[in-house]
């Protein structure tokens, strides 16, 4: 890896535009995320938050603009795109664990099939991450035998196993019962403290206050406002942001 790439910011979105058919979902999005920065994205339903972070690892393809991950941009070469993607871990609202594999197999899956790591080594690594999210004792169970909070922590461990340099979270706590939200948020706080670059879509404003370096507010496919959490919550600039905050806080 050469100097320029090493110094390039983890995520750069430049003039990003996306349409679903005729519907303009993302409008001129510009975003630059620094190494180790924690970004919280919020905004009303349908504002394009999910679409934006899904563009970052190309689960959605965009029509205009550039996405650079550590200086490398997505292109036509599928192998190169897959290589860029491997820098990025993603955690979904609906967990998306593989129900036909055990917790441990879920975690070693990418190591075995993408990195071709020997079995024992992969299992040791997976166990260390399961320990980090505090559920090593569930390794032999199947995902559907776990509670929602435990499943989401497995999903986090699974994403971390692939050793990503960036983690994306799309509403990781939105489908959890209130009792389980905190166990997942705590895991995410620990991850943030370890210096991981994170982009988190969430409505958990407590989490944003505590962890975020920057909060981004989106509406109708645009980034309306971005500011450090103190400024964002104390003195939002736009009426739209104030209205939104008055509803979620």
């Amino acid at each position: 890896m050469n100097e320029a790439v090493a110094e390039a910011p983890p995520i750069e979105l430049i003039g990003l535009n996306k349409w679903f058919g005729a519907f303009h979902v993302l409008k001129d999005i510009d975003l630059r995320v620094r190494e180790g920065e924690r970004i919280v994205v919020c905004g009303p339903s349908g504002s394009g938050k999910s679409t934006m972070i899904r563009c970052i690892n190309q689960l959605e393809t965009h029509q205009e603009g550039t996405i650079r991950i550590h200086g490398r941009s997505y292109g036509r070469d599928a192998r190169e795109n897959d290589a860029i993607r491997r820098e990025i871990g993603m955690v979904f609202q609906s967990f998306n664990l593989f129900p036909h594999l055990t917790v441990l197999e879920n975690c070693t899956f990418a190591l075995t099939w993408v990195r071709h790591m020997p079995k024992q080594e992969a299992e040791d690594l997976a166990m260390s991450f399961l320990a980090r999210v505090r559920i090593p004792e569930q390794a032999g169970k199947y995902p559907l035998q776990l509670s929602g909070g435990q499943q989401q922590r497995v999903a986090i461990a699974r994403a971390l196993c692939a050793r990503p340099r960036i983690m994306l979270f799309d509403e990781p706590t939105s489908s959890l019962d209130p009792e389980m939200i905190n166990e997942v948020l705590d895991t995410m706080v620990e991850l943030a403290e370890s210096g991981m670059t994170m982009v988190v879509v969430t409505h958990e404003m407590g989490f944003a206050r505590k962890v975020a370096d920057r909060v981004i507010f989106m509406d109708q496919g645009e980034i309306v406002e971005e500011a450090p959490p103190e400024a964002f919550f104390a003195a939002p600039r736009y009426d739209r942001t104030r209205l939104f905050l008055s509803q979620v806080l």
């Binding site: 690892n57 689960l59 599928a78 897959d82 290589a83 993607r85 491997r86 990025i88 871990g89 993603m90 979904f92 609906s94 998306n96 664990l97 593989f98 129900p99 036909h100 899956f109 990418a110 099939w113 993408v114 994403a159 692939a162």
Partner: peptide, 24 residues
């Protein structure tokens, strides 16, 4: 979501289909 989780991990289409989607 199953397919998305697999491709987010860097699995290609055939791997995702053969290892994640088909068995289920």
């Amino acid at each position: 979501g199953q397919y998305e989780a697999a491709s987010a991990m860097g699995l290609g289409f055939w791997q995702a289909t053969g290892l994640v989607i088909m068995p289920q």
